[in-house]
Nucleic acid binder design. Structure first.
Lengths: 200, 200
DNA sequence: ATTCTCTTACTTAACGTCCGTTAAGGTGGG
DNA sequence: CCCACCTTAACGGACGTTAAGTAAGAGAAT
């Protein structure tokens, strides 16, 4: 845990991160001003510069903080014993639950996929996704599917995440019901699709 | 074609839209200034206000222009005869191709899903997605799948789009290869997954 | 054919506001 | 005393937007 950067009170520095994360999730980097952040934190704008070098530095620290949470929570969906089929269903339902429970992190992820530079994306990949990705690829192999493990792992994540990504527009599409936003319904649907593929 | 709003030269008004679309795709609404737009169009900043009432109005017009293109191109992936299986593969491969061919529209879609207000999302749904969505739901029914047609249609789109959404980060994930960004490879992979589900 | 007028399509210059950032100073515990 | 932690006030610049003026062309009147 290298804390070379934070010069000030660790507590305030943390509060700044945790209060700014919802703002960045809602409005994106360019849509949030340092004054907006200082308002929700309850300090002056200048105080932010006591803890972080500039807006970019604050944003980067906020992303690291947010995504280190995400890494832990994703990891927990994969620490389980059982047959490959059981582990597949366990991952699907738990991952769906967690994405439903923390929409902020999901939205930050989407924003980073759109706007993140190479450095930030590399960090995000290593911090959050490389380990789970390896586990899922291994799982795919054990399931005996003959398609590319990388593509399959992406497909599994996409099946789940896309339902949440489209939550805002699905209510205007034919057949869109409230139950389609229920993580239980989504999780079951995805698990069914995936196990259906195995049955072949 | 109601052109109540455009008071000025239609040609310049169109050029403004078409030059501003790539900017909005790359940097988002808040990340693009009216001066940025005027620079790429080659006019003064004030000229933009001769054709559009304000930044929001220009943005809305740009989205309508961009997405009306998208509606046509998606429609074309569904105007085909054949068995349900043939139509499924045709849609999958063609939709994949088109998303690969126009990354700008794809990115604008992602941004609207993140930031679009209810009004814009409703417009986007009706303009682009309602008709294809109905066709895909009908296709799902013909294929005799016993799961919710709405969820299945979303899943199909998600399987394809998520590969593109993660293009920027997949190169940092294990097993990420250049070929995984090839629309032919992605299209084949998705078609295989989907027809695999039917085989059951 | 020339002049006059009116409209369209723009220009330059500026407005007030908000932005990221910093300078200068205060305050309270070691 | 000093240093971490915070304040108020301000800087220069970029922002969205507007006011005022100009160049060009179309149409009618002389």
């Amino acid at each position: 845990m290298s804390n070379k950067k934070s010069a000030g009170n660790l507590n305030t520095a943390l509060v700044i991160l945790e209060k700014s994360i919802p703002l960045f999730a809602q409005s994106g980097y360019a849509g949030v001003s340092m004054r907006d952040i200082s308002k929700v934190v309850g300090t002056s704008g200048a105080a932010l510069y006591h803890h972080y070098p500039d807006k970019q530095g604050l944003y980067l620290a906020a992303m690291e903080h947010a995504f280190s949470d995400m890494a832990l929570s994703i990891q927990s969906t994969l620490d389980i014993k059982g047959t490959p089929e059981e582990r597949l269903v366990h991952f699907t339902t738990n991952f769906t639950d967690q994405m439903a429970r923390s929409p902020e992190l999901r939205i930050l992820l989407q924003r980073e996929l759109l706007d993140g530079d190479d450095e930030r994306l590399k960090l995000l990949a290593n911090l959050v996704f490389v380990k789970p990705f390896k586990v899922i690829k291994e799982l795919a192999r054990e399931l005996g599917l003959d398609c590319d493990a990388h593509l399959l792992a992406i497909s599994m994540a996409g099946l789940i995440l896309f339902h949440f990504e489209t939550e805002s527009i699905r209510r205007y599409l034919p057949g869109g019901l409230k139950k389609h936003n229920d993580p239980k319904v989504i999780g079951k649907h995805v698990a069914k699709l995936l196990t259906g593929m195995l049955g072949k």
